[in-house]
Design a protein around this nucleic acid. Structure first.
Lengths: 353, 353
DNA sequence: GTGAAAGCGCTAACAG
DNA sequence: CTGTTAGCGCTTTCAC
């Protein structure tokens, strides 16, 4: 038994309109070499029957699928969801479809998804690379744009990311202005490039101010709330008597730091100030609200999409775009002069312990 | 000038392996009527050259695209992101690709996306319907599964949602157990079905306990933090002297309620208790943490995918699946007996105002 | 301006 | 077990 034909094809429309299928095709694709009258007629028929051209067939014929692939670590992570949203909105303008895949930070999955995208004949890919994605990209010779801080490892490919140097400057400027000139650092560790980028930016800032990182309390931590909480406990333990502020490498850790401060019986921002970076929605509802450096997630997605479209069109260019971060002021960052000496506060708590 | 042919086609692989393209196809598709030796050889060649079958061509030929569409309000909303994740993970098992579209609660966009999915020849759709989606579904005769509380409006289509009656029972059981037998209700309003479903569930619960909703404080609110905050302020204003607890129709409003309690100079849970429903990640970091009824977002997505696969396979069935909610106990819900009479507390605050 | 014909890359009869 | 053939639905030369 034959496979049932598709309900309605261009041939049907052509017949109904009394023209050949080539003419119908011309009408529907908005070609110019066709009489206005015929075009109208074909459109009317198509409209009437709710006909939609088969995108699969078009793609096969044209060699362009009108789809692009997006590989991110996890769509359930608000930051990446926003990136995806930005890309989708930008793509939607031209009817481009975005295929979203989650790598879960797993190189193997990333590779698999890359293959799936190639199979699907996407016209290009936007990837937050967790492995040497460049192998696949060059192998399959597919237009690609990288996103996220890891992009820096593949200078041969265009990329879009947040300007961490600028973001860190924003944060540190604020910290300094509030009188915290020796903030502790909660530094995420792991395979990601984010760590390097961040600490380098901090180092550069201090250097610009004629100082070095020596003497700063820097605690390693995984990129999670629980880990941030534990790391902050260590910071509190090490902290001296000066006013204390901590700058965390992402909002999750900062949120954890908030918890650790409370665990220690201290108050934020009265005793300890906390600054994060990311812009996670949860930071709005913590107590106090999390002051943070917001990365432009949505714009990253949108911009990456634009770059990709350019790359697909062959108008190469190998741009490395860095988008500015913004400060979100909430309650977690106080003023140093108003702060009880942390050592004293800790001692005070100690009495109760 | 001709369009450049695809780098590598099945014909190339066939030639390289010294077989016909049909044989190559058989080898690659894992058909049985082929000698093991030939299959090996073809696979080896394909592997060596990094060949991937053109999914577009396969789809066109087979009449199945291996893609399904998912229309949700907003991927940047954690709940829907989780639904999407669940669907994707389930789909990934069979190499099915999920096309995600955001309706932004807009009927017009939903309709457009539906068209786009039809064009792309997806094998089926999963939709959180914001308009009479059923028109398109029947018109294009495409397998569909509905998700979310609105699904109830379209009994003709299979659906998956969270069991609000059970979830509300969970919440109310807890409230009653803690001594709050007359909680105030923050009730989201708008076009969504969620409102009806929720208040009906509450009504049913009270009825089962031989009581009615009369006498309960019920405040309308939009589904946002700001609106919840304002609505809660009104509740506080109306509240009498008994121990006060409030059950909000979603977590955003509940988060707003937390803020309103603090605005009023009251403490949660000492003076006022708050219970939400959804399971938003932000509830973990509020102060106090938000006790809430968690909807099984991920499972909803996964289950919907399963149902859809069944529908695509023609093994119809018109199930309406309701997935159980779970309680997430955090700090926002106290015990009535330990609560200062709210009236008294309010009066107390009043003195300072 | 329009039609006929070829073919995108693949799979599924149909023969052998 | 394998090759030949005929399309899937569409766009695009190439004639007229």
């Amino acid at each position: 038994m034959k496979k049932p034909r598709q309900s309605l094809t261009i041939v049907d429309i052509a017949q109904l309109a009394g023209v050949s299928k080539s003419t119908a095709s011309r009408a529907l694709s908005g070609a110019t070499n066709i009489s206005a009258e015929t075009r109208e007629r074909v459109h009317a028929v198509a409209e009437k029957h709710g006909y939609q051209r088969n995108h699969l067939a078009q793609s096969l014929r044209n060699g362009r699928s009108g789809m692009i692939g997006l590989i991110i670590p996890d769509i359930a992570n608000p930051f990446w969801a926003d990136v995806a949203r930005g890309a989708q909105d930008a793509a939607g303008q031209n009817g481009t479809i975005v295929l979203i895949f989650n790598s879960d930070w797993d190189p193997e999955r990333e590779r698999q998804h890359m293959r799936a995208l190639i199979k699907a004949r996407v016209d290009g890919v936007i990837v937050n690379p967790v492995h040497d994605i460049i192998d696949e990209v060059t192998r399959f010779d597919i237009p690609a744009v990288l996103i996220g801080s890891s992009a820096i490892r593949f200078p041969a490919l265009p990329s879009v990311g947040s300007d961490i140097v600028q973001g860190v400057r924003l944060g540190l400027d604020l910290l300094f202005a509030r009188g915290f000139t020796a903030p502790a650092i909660l530094l995420g560790q792991g395979p990601r490039q984010a760590r390097e980028t961040f600490i380098n930016a901090v180092g550069r800032y201090f250097q610009a101010h004629g100082r070095s990182l020596d003497g700063l309390i820097i605690e390693d931590s995984a990129y999670s709330v629980a880990a941030g909480r534990a790391a902050m406990a260590r910071v509190l333990h090490r902290a001296g008597t000066g006013p204390l502020a901590v700058f965390a490498n992402n909002d999750q850790m900062a949120l954890g730091a908030l918890l650790a401060v409370r665990d220690a019986g201290l108050r934020c921002p009265q005793d300890v100030s906390v600054l994060g970076i990311d812009g996670t929605p949860a930071g709005e509802f913590s107590e106090p609200g999390l002051t943070t450096v917001v990365k432009p997630a949505r714009q990253i997605g949108a911009r990456a999409m634009q770059l990709l479209e350019r790359a697909i069109a062959g108008e190469a260019g190998n741009d490395h775009v860095l988008l500015a971060c913004e400060l979100e002021l909430r309650g977690s960052l106080g003023v140093a002069s108003a702060v009880a000496a942390t050592g004293a506060a800790l001692a005070h708590v100690g009495n109760h312990a």
